[in-house]
Amino acid sequence: MEPCVTVADAFTPHTFVDAFSFIHDNASFLFQKTGEHLELSFAALGIALLLALPLGLWLGHRHRGLFLAVSVSSLGRALPSVVLIAFGLTILGVGFWNNTAALVVLAVPPILTNAYFAIDGVDPDVVEAARGMGLSERQILLQIELPLGLPLMIAGIRIAAIFVIATATIAAIAGGGGLGEVIVNQASYGLAGVVGASLCVSALALLAALLLSLTLRALTRRPGPVP
């Protein structure tokens, strides 16, 4: 296959200057691509959260499914994103849902495993005390274990968010749109465009990581809401 970057462009650090002027000149176009990128990422992350978070919390609360949590996380690491997208393409065909499905599969393991270990690792004495005070299992999970396990749980969501934003780039090979479409199409956008879009994706990933770190800090500064 043709490499996505061709040798036609000269490789000089000057390309970065060109990349910034590309971003400046095509701001509205890149804005639209960023929108597509975020739409895909949010859809995948949302579905993964809905699937993995309740399951992880429940398994952690019951202290069951250690094997599942561990094997899901090591399997998740072993699945290359390119392979997932390509498998998705062969099974589901080209389109938004193929990419979303592949991204969901990538996002589930870190969320599930971290949620499990976050709740499973809460001090059993604290849980016992809460049970002694007459709290229901639901109350224990939501008011005791969840606030205590929050840092680890959010760390998992943070990893998943970075994964998803990074891999949504690769989704462009499956007609997914987003910033990856610029990155894999040097023929149309030139090396400056490729590097410019790469800078945008990196900024997006860093921003998401920062946002989740700030969320965690805000949530853990005060004790949780008192019922």
Binding site: A166, I183, S198, V201, A205
Partner: peptide
């Protein structure tokens, strides 16, 4: 931490101006 956050495809492309294909 910073290096880890940069998407792989983007990092590959960002290095191309310096070290080529």
């Amino acid at each position: 931490d910073f290096l880890y956050t940069i998407p792989s495809l983007a990092l590959f492309q960002l290095l191309v101006p310096f070290t080529g294909l």
